[in-house]
Each structure stands twice: as structure tokens, then as C-alpha cells.
């Protein structure tokens, strides 16, 4: 039997959730005041994921950095592996919103895409 403690992110209440687990299986969730807390807790303890947003270096653009995000959630424990790839990447202007900048970042199967347009400057 294992206990995990979480803060619910569903609303400003921020209920303090206690999740009882056994061999990776959720036994019970307590401390929540609504259904959203239960759903959040079960996901967060079994498969926590995050969208990562950052910037990537651009060459030949009107800005030196283009903002980017993972096209979908990636596992929470891969955040820094994703950032490592992002920090070493360089792309060429022009860039459009949605342009794939890194396919399959850090072996997650998720691509990193641009979230703004960068014009090319001569």
C-alpha cells in the first residue's frame, strides 16, 4: 500500500487529494469535493503528462527565437529530455505556426511545432 498526495488543479479550491495505491493500481481517491478531483488524481498518479512550451533558435529570421510546443502531451518524466532536444535545435526562417520543428522529440513520438510565424530577413 502506497499513498500519494496531490493538489487538485480543477478549480481555485485546490483540494488536497490523497491517493491510495497498490502495485501501481489506484485503490481510492479521497479529499476531493467533486468528480473532477477523482479523475485528475487517477490520471496524475498513473500517467502524468504535460505540454511543454519553449523557444527554438532561428537562423535568418526577424526574431532570434521562435516559440514552440509539443503537439500533444508528453510524459511528465520526459520534460527535461524534451528540453534538451529543444535547446540544441536550430531552424531556418521562414517559420509558420504549426511547422514541425522537431519530429519525434526525445523518442516520445510527439513532434515539436512552431507557435508563431517568423519572417525571413535577407
Amino acid at each position: 500500500m502506497e499513498q500519494r498526495f496531490l493538489t487538485c488543479i480543477g478549480c481555485p479550491m485546490g483540494c488536497q487529494l490523497t491517493v491510495e495505491m497498490d502495485k501501481g493500481e489506484v485503490i481510492s481517491v479521497s479529499g476531493n469535493t467533486c468528480k473532477r478531483g477523482d479523475i485528475y488524481a487517477r490520471k496524475e498518479v498513473t500517467n502524468p503528462t504535460r505540454i511543454v512550451t519553449s523557444t527554438i533558435a532561428v537562423k535568418g529570421g526577424d526574431k532570434a527565437r521562435v516559440s514552440c510546443k509539443t503537439a500533444s502531451d508528453i510524459p511528465k518524466d520526459k520534460i527535461f529530455a524534451v528540453m534538451k532536444d529543444i535547446n540544441h535545435a536550430v531552424c531556418e526562417a521562414p517559420v509558420k505556426i504549426g511547422t514541425v520543428l522537431i519530429p519525434d522529440v526525445a523518442g516520445t513520438g510527439v513532434s515539436v511545432i512552431a507557435t508563431r510565424n517568423i519572417a525571413k530577413v535577407s
Partner: peptide, 11 residues
Amino acid sequence: LKRNIVQCLDD
């Protein structure tokens, strides 16, 4: 927002 406290600080 609670979400930001959890995902920007607690994480």
C-alpha cells in the same frame, strides 16, 4: 491559478 501552482512550481 491552482493549475499554475501545481504545474509551474510543484512539478
